[in-house]
Design a protein around this nucleic acid. Structure first.
Length: 405
DNA sequence: AGTCCACAGGAAGGGCAGGCGA
DNA sequence: TCGCCTGCCCTTCCTGTGGACT
């Protein structure tokens, strides 16, 4: 039997296997449900603010706050879709642009955001090369040529402002004064409740004419959501009530995050599927919880540049060293220098390594706390923030890599 | 009260790659 | 092809800092 035959054999066995999924998409965040349980009130409020768009009036700018997985994005997109539908019926044209500012290479610089906005309006802009003021001009002109109301939804707007400041928002707000034929309205979405405090007063007052706070879901509400979705996603009887309850409870512990609840249920199903089980059990949920955590860590680390990986590897080596109780920036830099020397990697300065440590902290891979030790200086105390299981996988990944051993 | 440590972290700018228009 | 512009990664230089020590 050739290896191709073997693979074909495996694939045909896979095709013969019965799946407990009917429509797995229903458990992903890209799924657009017909109903959004427990968000009726918020939907009504968003509609109240945005409905003037249907009469061609510019709606007040709107700000949605709430932790991750509380339904901000899904509600705003849901209302946007409905508005678009209604505007088509009324032959009152309305253009909606949705941008997730957390997406890499979409909104991490002023240039890219403006280029992306122009692109969504149908005007192609090169990825780099043009002066920013030219991209500005292109966007304004394209926007004005639209000759209609444009509703711009900026999801995770706090990451945008962290990266490039609030100047761009000021320009976007002011754009209405320069437009002759079109109108622009902004909906901002943020996970960070204190976000608006960091804004310039003028931006703050114009951007948050209307504000809405999305409360977290509780376990009972999460259970309702999961139940609805699992009925679409799974074959009848594949998921017990207890499994849904467990996923809901675990996600409720994590500030009522519906995304986490859906992930848990989906991965539990995938695990059951792979084990050829025709029913999802609580055991699968436990396995799913571990898997999600490990996958997240590995994914983050894999996408880091070599230098950042070398810093993390240095930290892991120090943690493994029994003599080290507390790991500090200086220790990490020394270890990092020797890792670089052994691996032939170019050695960065301590200043840069300090930034890489801060980055690893922001990814949740390590915990870095700035402490002062009196006359022995100021430093960061660093601990690993990943589970033993994830650590094992990470070590495996590093020792198998070309660079580190 | 003053000193001093070991950094944190801000600011400025260099060098590079990718891309544009002339 | 050249000059210019951008983002990105990095270095260099610098000021700031909390609290143990003197």
């Amino acid at each position: 039997m050739t290896s191709s035959d073997k693979i074909q054999d495996m694939l045909s066995k896979y095709m013969e296997q019965k799946s407990i999924f009917v429509n797995k998409d229903a458990l992903t965040i890209s799924f657009k449900p017909d109903d959004l349980p427990h968000r009726e009130e918020q939907i009504g409020q968003v509609i109240d603010v945005l409905a003037p768009a249907l009469r061609g009036d510019r709606p007040s700018s709107l700000f949605l706050y709430g932790k991750s997985g509380t339904g901000k994005s899904v509600v705003s997109q849901y209302v946007a879709r409905e508005l678009e539908k209604a505007s088509k019926k009324n032959s009152n044209d309305l253009k909606i642009i949705y941008i997730n500012c957390k997406m890499r290479r979409v909104a991490d610089t002023e240039y890219r955001l403006l280029a992306e906005l122009s692109r969504q309006l149908g005007k192609d802009v090169p990825e780099t090369g043009l002066p920013t003021n030219v991209v500005y001009k292109t966007f304004f002109e394209t926007l004005d040529e639209e000759n209609r109301l444009v509703l711009l939804i900026l999801d995770e707007i706090d990451t945008l402002v962290k990266k490039i400041g609030d100047g761009i928002l000021y320009s976007l707000i002011r754009v209405n004064e320069e437009l002759e034929q079109s109108k622009l309205s902004i909906v901002g979405i943020s996970n960070d409740l204190s976000f608006s405090d960091s804004l310039d007063a003028r931006v703050k007052s114009s951007l948050s004419e209307e504000e809405l706070i999305f409360p977290p879901y509780n376990a009972i509400q999460l259970k309702d959501i999961l139940k609805d979705r699992s009925e679409v996603a799974f074959t009848i009887g594949a998921v017990d009530d207890s499994v849904v309850s467990k996923c809901a409870a675990l996600a409720a512990q994590e500030h009522g995050d519906a995304r986490k609840a859906l992930d848990l249920l989906r991965v539990s199903g995938e695990i059951a599927d792979r084990l050829n089980d025709m029913k999802v059990t609580e055991k699968h949920v436990d396995l799913a919880e571990d898997k999600i955590d490990v996958d997240r860590v590995i994914e983050v680390i894999k996408t880091q540049p070599k230098q950042s990986q070398a810093v993390l590897w240095s930290i892991i080596k120090l943690v493994e060293d029994d003599d080290m109780n507390v790991i500090e920036t200086g220790d990490i830099f020394d270890m990092y220098s020797s890792v670089c020397k052994n691996s032939g990697l170019g050695c960065l300065t301590q200043r840069r390594v300090s930034d890489l440590i801060a980055e690893l902290d922001s990814f949740g891979i390590i915990n870095a706390k700035v402490v002062s030790k009196g006359r022995y200086g100021r430093t960061r105390e660093v601990k690993l923030a990943i589970s033993d299981q994830a650590l094992r996988k990470v070590k495996e990944m590093f020792t198998n890599s070309f660079y580190f051993e």
